[in-house]
Amino acid sequence: MEAKNPEPKNAHEEISRVLSGLPKINAPENFEFNLMTRIQNGAYENARWKVKNPLFTPWRLVPAAAGLAAIVLMFLIFPDQDTTENLLMTDPPARAAAVNASPDTMHLRISSKAGNKSDQTLAGNKKATENKDKAAPAEETFRVVVNPNDAVTKEKLPFEFNDSRSVDLDSYLGGHKSPAAKGGRGVLVSSGNSMSADEFDGFIMSGEMEKLPELKARMDSIMLEYSKQKEKRQKAAENKEEKRLK
């Protein structure tokens, strides 16, 4: 131990001697008087011990207050000048018009393009791919409005629906699958034109078909667990009732 510590033992003694030789500091002469005065006056709280947190001194709050005032003034002087609409919060114009239309108006969609519309709707993968690759010609969509005075007017809809990408949901669910659906492609009505056919395949994303058995098994196990728990709860309720009756 001594060998590990190179310091001689008396080195600490020297330090002790030096420290003990320091002059003694005495309390000020009026210490007792001040103390007893404080006690007699009940002034137990020393000014030093009062919270002196510099964060909360008034002069330190001035810049923060000024900043806050400036922000408030900015809002008052320059009210909301942001004219850009939130596209997610507004309806597309065509739909908004359709929703707002009077009940006695009839909506039809007529494609100005030559050719059978149903053919377009039921187009297969090939055609869809072609459409995707080529720059598709502008498809104009119109709305025929039958006015109360039996006058028929045709309005051009700014929003273009792509029928080739649509499928009738009712008939799809009813089992009457369209040729397009048979071909493994199909999208919901008005689900948008921008969506690629490869991205969405009916209700199941492509590539998830393989997961179906696994998902089904998981679903079954959840259902089984649920029914077990339900039975347990029923039994517990019955037991409670029996106890209460007893």
Partner: peptide, 27 residues
């Protein structure tokens, strides 16, 4: 008062603070 004054002074190195501390100790 004096031993405590000496102790706190050597610990803090500030006479005014030490006087307050010793006063507070006595209170």
């Amino acid at each position: 008062k004096d031993p405590l004054m000496n102790f706190t002074y050597r610990f803090l190195g500030d006479k005014d603070a030490c006087t307050d501390i010793v006063q507070e100790t006595m209170i």
